[in-house]
Design a protein around this nucleic acid. Structure first.
Lengths: 231, 231
DNA sequence: GGCTTTACACCTAGGTGCGAACTT
DNA sequence: AAGTTCGCACCTAGGTGTAAAGCC
């Protein structure tokens, strides 16, 4: 699997699907912070080769942005509190386009931490646990490259309903045809696993001439924001 | 002046206008909490007498609800931080209908406070300063009693635009007539001062027979929520 | 040519007072 | 009769991918 893509813009864009985490094994009476950051997977820049549906290395990474940590707003809560709920992190984290990133979750004991701040890297050592889930790696883009990913996001993100096949430019007959010929299971929440299981082949039928892979000159791109959704 | 009215419902309703506060005189390097609560003005229940446009005492207050404190989400910030911004508090506070209430703002030095909690009354003594602005007293209702207040809220609250005279059931002629005959100044934010300056006479022209003031039996009302707006 | 930016139609989410129905 | 609840039409606010324009 090649992971999903995330659109980034100047104004900031939510990540979809969202990072969702459940915590176990904490000391119920101890106080903890929980924080999140997103780190580069490697120091490469990528380009997408349409005809092979693959991301290819296209040079070295842009100069790194100062690391940014998102501290969960419920932070400094007891282990008891944290373990009772599923977390939906939210925040603003600056990323470079056309790079691969890995979101991480940090659980930090209060008695250890030294002044947790959004602008300082998460401390490391005893009392700090960091978790990375490989299936949540994604590539930043300013426009989707892989049509299968576009399709999944449109089908599963409620805010993109306007782009679904059903409900837009369909006549009575089309609606009936969709019901049978192009039927897809009911909408459910999109998860990162959906991209892990995704086939690498795209079903595009628009007659475009395949392009040859080339080592394009990596153009420097301005850093942009990516937000993960609230709720 | 008689203060404004605030609608309360089971699901919770924002307060409009909102409580807005600017802080001065803090030690820039000291840490402070800022909190808000709403306390009864007296232990009376009220009823509105339409023909005299006045609120009359109608018995003793319902049994008080456990006090609830809203802690500003930026809390535990430096005096420097607090003084730099205007505060728009938000939260859930339970109130009885047909009572008069007074919102308060509390500024609490960190080194004094002993476990600030939404469910405990604000501590008092050295290191805690409480502010009450008499012009922000209001009466809770489940439906507006005074038509002037309804009018002001519709005119000034952007979410109530659908009930404004202009833009609803108006023909071309009506629109022109409004422009001249019923002209009112451009929309601006509603403040509590608008109610302080409000005339006690209502301009209602619907032919309703005036009711005589009576000592109505106070019906026990379920407690409901009032929220103050975010942003 | 590859990538980014911008304006946009189309949604979700939720804040308004209203009026009918309901409760006491 | 007085007050509360509920569903509603009508808004604001803001999250989607898109297509055209802009940039390099």
């Amino acid at each position: 699997d090649i992971g999903t893509e995330m659109i980034i813009t100047k104004a900031g864009r939510r990540m979809f699907p969202a990072m969702r985490v459940k915590i176990a094994g904490l000391d119920p009476h101890q106080q903890y912070y929980i924080a999140m950051d997103i780190v580069p997977v490697d120091n490469k820049r990528y380009r997408y080769v349409y005809h092979s549906s693959k991301w290819m290395v296209a040079g070295n990474a842009d100069s790194p942005v100062p690391p940014r940590v998102y501290i969960h707003p419920d932070s400094l809560a007891s282990g008891d509190t944290w373990m009772r709920q599923v977390l939906d992190d939210q925040g603003h984290i600056i990323l470079h386009s056309m790079h691969k990133y890995q979101p991480r979750v940090h659980v930090i004991r209060k008695d250890f931490s030294s002044e947790l701040s959004p602008n300082k890297p998460v401390p490391s050592g005893e009392g700090v646990k960091t978790f990375s889930f490989p299936e949540t790696v994604f590539t930043t883009v300013t426009a989707y490259q892989n049509q299968q990913i576009t399709r999944l996001k449109i089908d599963r993100n409620p805010f993109a309903k306007g782009f679904r096949d059903s409900g837009r430019n369909r006549t009575g007959l089309e609606a009936i045809m969709e019901t049978y010929a192009f039927w897809r299971p009911p909408v459910r929440t999109l998860t990162f696993e959906d991209f892990t299981n995704m086939q690498k082949q795209q079903g595009g039928s628009t007659g475009t001439s395949p392009t040859t892979s080339s080592t394009g000159t990596p153009s420097p791109s301005g850093a942009a924001h990516l937000l993960s959704p609230s709720c």
